[in-house]
């Protein structure tokens, strides 16, 4: 059952990495958004899949009567979804501000920290 999802997750990663490797900021952001989903699905699937039985305990029992879905990756992924969203929002604003300040959306032209014509280090003492 996990096989199909594994292939799909591989596709998620492929698309995400391909987008991140472009030099336009917008495409990078799209790639990062997809990467979040890819990783969440990866964790979810690695905890094995169980169809349609959520990890809930019936009112009258103390432990579930049947085998339920694995609750642990769900707990991990739940917080991860919210955090990756906050992170995406932050990157979005960062990209937007960078575009405003530098006037370009080409990551290769954003060279404030590492200017292209950087001088060689001094040789003296």
């Amino acid at each position: 059952m996990e096989t199909g999802l594994s292939i799909l997750i591989g596709l998620f990663f492929t698309v995400s990495v391909y987008l991140m490797l472009s030099k336009e900021l917008v495409r990078m952001l799209l790639g990062i958004a997809i990467l979040g989903n890819a990783v969440n699905l990866l964790i979810f699937t690695a905890g094995r899949l169980t169809r349609e039985v959520p990890p809930l305990i019936p009112e009258e029992l103390y432990t579930p009567a049947v085998q339920t879905a694995n609750p642990l990756p769900q707990a991990l992924v739940l917080t991860a979804i919210v955090i990756s969203f906050s992170f995406l929002a932050f990157l979005l604003v960062l990209a937007f501000r960078a575009y405003q300040e530098l006037g370009t959306d080409d990551a290769n032209e954003m060279r404030v920290a590492e200017p292209a014509d950087e001088q060689a280090p001094p040789q003296g003492y």
Binding site: L5, N40, F44, T50, R51, P54, A69, Q74, V77, L78
Partner: peptide
């Protein structure tokens, strides 16, 4: 997909 595999919260 989360819904299908028993994760309504997610």
């Amino acid at each position: 997909i989360f819904m299908l595999f028993g994760a309504p919260d997610l």
